[in-house]
Computed example of a mutant assay.
Amino acid sequence: MATNIGIMDSAYFVGRNEILGWINDRLHLNLSRIEEAASGAVQCQMMDMTFPGVVPMHKVNFDAKNEYEMIQNYKVMQEVFTKLKITKPLEVNKLVKGRPLDNLEFLQWLKRFCDSINGGIMNENYNPVERRSRGGKEKSVKGSSKVSKSMQTNNMHQPPPVTTSNKTFGPKQAKSHAVGGGSNSSAEVQALSKELEDLKVSVDLLEKERDFYFSKLRDVEILCQTPELDDLPIVVAVKKILYAADANESALEEAQECLSQSLGLGAEEVEQEAETQT
């Protein structure tokens, strides 16, 4: 069971479109943005599909909009993790903010985890729409009908709307035509916004990969700065590579030469040793 997945695992290089396609295909949804899964309901149902009977779907609210409602969904998720002894930490405070990168990372992990169960084969008897209708969404729909009735009752007691003059109506009507005429430009803006969002996600992933490798180099540097190891030939050679200027392409050759000299190996001995190994 793949619960602990390293940060450089291929799971974290799965794109946003593939994740959305995976969710929409399995749960019969039509999500277009990663942020739409920030409520935690989608994640709960993915676990329900993977582990039938483990998730109390009646506690899952698919219409959660406020953070406190989303937190309740993640509490359900945490209970499921505890039952299944999954050690993956749930960073709820980040996920409920709806930031694309945080939610994308968790969904990338979730996809890898679900794919590791039964080879990722879907349960053919699982009906995602029926499971949702039995869960929290049904309650929220009933609640919305009650609200609509009360709004209708209140509207009956309110005075009729005040009509406007022709002078006021003219500019408004012209404005509405202007807005309608710009529908094509608004579609272009929306498409560019999505493209910009994808680019931001890609940049965030590249920055994370850069920070990962930088932290590794920093760990090596700290290790080389240990006083007991400072004068060792191998440490001196590694430092030459770490502190070499960007334009210095021969850092590795210099490090190897320094190491050879420190070990008392001449050029001829190095060549003979290399020929012996070949």
Rank of each mutant, 00 (worst) to 15 (best):
E91D: 15
Q108W: 10
D102R: 04
F81E: 00
K97S: 01
L90E: 09
L110D: 09
T87N: 05
L101Y: 12
L104R: 03
E79L: 01
L90H: 06
Q78V: 06
T87V: 08
V80R: 13
V96A: 09
L107V: 02
K83D: 15
V92C: 07
K85S: 13
Q78T: 10
F81P: 05
D102S: 01
V80W: 09
V96K: 11
L104F: 01
M77P: 13
N73H: 04
T87P: 01
L101M: 10
Q72I: 06
D102L: 02
T87G: 03
Q78W: 12
K83V: 15
Q78G: 06
V80C: 14
Q78M: 14
V92N: 05
Q78N: 12
F106W: 06
P89V: 14
T82Q: 14
E79D: 14
K97A: 00
K85E: 15
K75G: 11
D102Y: 06
V92T: 12
V80F: 11
E79W: 08
Y74N: 02
K85L: 13
L107Y: 10
L110K: 02
K94H: 06
P100N: 15
E91P: 12
V80I: 12
Y74S: 02
L107D: 06
G98P: 13
F81D: 00
K83P: 12
E105G: 00
P100G: 07
E79Y: 06
G98C: 12
F106K: 02
G98Y: 03
K88T: 05
N73T: 10
P100A: 14
L101T: 04
T82G: 04
V80S: 09
N93T: 12
K97W: 00
K88D: 01
V76S: 13
Q72E: 11
N93V: 07
D102I: 03
T87Q: 11
L104K: 05
K94A: 03
L95C: 11
L101F: 14
K75F: 07
V76R: 08
